[in-house]
Write a protein that binds this DNA or RNA. Structure first.
Lengths: 205, 205
DNA sequence: TTTTAATATGAGCTATCACTCATATTTATG
DNA sequence: CATAAATATGAGTGATAGCTCATATTAAAA
């Protein structure tokens, strides 16, 4: 008899079509962020581009931020999975090769849709620790952290700092390149590899 | 008799009090972006925090974007002026020292108000080439570009690429540190200096 | 002082956005 | 088939944002 104040969490899709609806919504959300930016990023626009009614959207997401959070989470988990996969595949092989492959993954993730990556990043920080966004991000960081820990390299700063900085500088270079309209991904990879390896103090090949 | 379709450009302040009004508006805009983010960044909120009526705001800015553009321009011009000043002051002295000082300026600009810097950056790109924002940014880049050109260093890539990447990686590291809540600026300077110098191939001291 | 220009005000208009709900349709279940 | 559960719909609602305008106040000009 207690008036359910927050009936927030909505239905979880059980049939195939509702799963498709949710997928379409997230895909549409990403495309709108990418092409229209935050200005055009409205729930009505998302539903429309998804080919779904606005009512359907709110049957699976309690509010707009929940859509964004789901988008962020999907994005992070995809990234985490790819990074872990690479780490696993390069077990035992030279660190340089693994770093190369990880850079490839990170760049691929951010460089093809620079505006989307940028806005997802922004929203991720705005939504903060709510919505439990950070788990996947932790996994991503952990891949690189453990790689560096096992590398035997003489790091210029403590492990966590180096991990963070390597991510940050790669992210910064990719972001600038993407917004600058560059399209040559191998070249970008080369530059980032140079920045990362020289930061880490790995001697040039 | 032509119906002035775009009566957009508003009054330019001539008296002292109106100049103060404009300044208050821009200062309020910055503070709101910093503390409330884009959510709370409304013209009514800006006017309120500036201690000014909403009508006054629209007497000097044709629309909201014009306020943002003015904020971005002010920000860029301040940065450009400081960079040029440093460049001038370090004429003839070792490149390493000049780079250090430039990093100091850049970090100071971004690290103390990370959220503001981030959102200004975002809005700068959204407003694009309209509003003539890019002039100051060009000046900023030119300072580093010319420094590198005269350095005699054997750069790892072409001059423009290196200039862009050095900015981008410093920006990325600072951004991450700021959002991470770090407060130790000297330490951050050290890390960025390491990243920049090793990217440039300057031998460790 | 009188007149004119500059500046300031804020209630209110319009558009739009996040979100609801009553209803309809589709799928699963017995 | 009949019944119930899941899913889909979209017009409509309340709130708020950007912005206007008629009016008031202050400062400069004559």
């Amino acid at each position: 008899m207690i008036p359910n104040l927050p009936p927030k969490p909505r239905k979880t899709p059980v049939q195939a079509r509702s799963t498709a609806t949710v997928d379409a919504i997230l895909e549409a959300a990403a495309r709108i962020l990418e092409t229209e930016g935050l200005e055009g990023y409205t729930t009505n626009a998302i539903a429309k581009r998804a080919g779904v009614s606005i009512g359907s959207l709110y049957q699976y997401f309690p509010n707009k931020d929940a859509v964004t959070a789901a988008l962020v989470r999907t994005d992070s988990e995809t990234m985490a999975a790819r990074m872990e996969e690479v780490r696993c595949a390069f077990e035992g092989r030279p660190i340089r090769d693994c770093i190369d492959a990880l850079i490839e993954v990170a760049v691929c993730h951010q460089f093809d849709r620079p505006m989307l990556a940028r806005l997802i990043d922004l929203e991720e920080h705005r939504l903060g620790q709510d919505f439990g966004l950070s788990e996947a991000k932790q996994r991503i960081v952990q891949v690189v952290r453990s790689l560096l820990a096992q590398s035997g390299l003489d790091l210029p700063f403590d492990l966590d700092t180096v991990t963070q900085d390597v991510f940050a500088l790669a992210h910064g270079i990719t972001d600038a390149a993407g917004l600058n309209g560059e399209t040559d991904r191998p070249r970008l990879n080369t530059r980032i590899r140079h920045a990362v390896l020289s930061y880490l103090g790995v001697p040039a090949s």
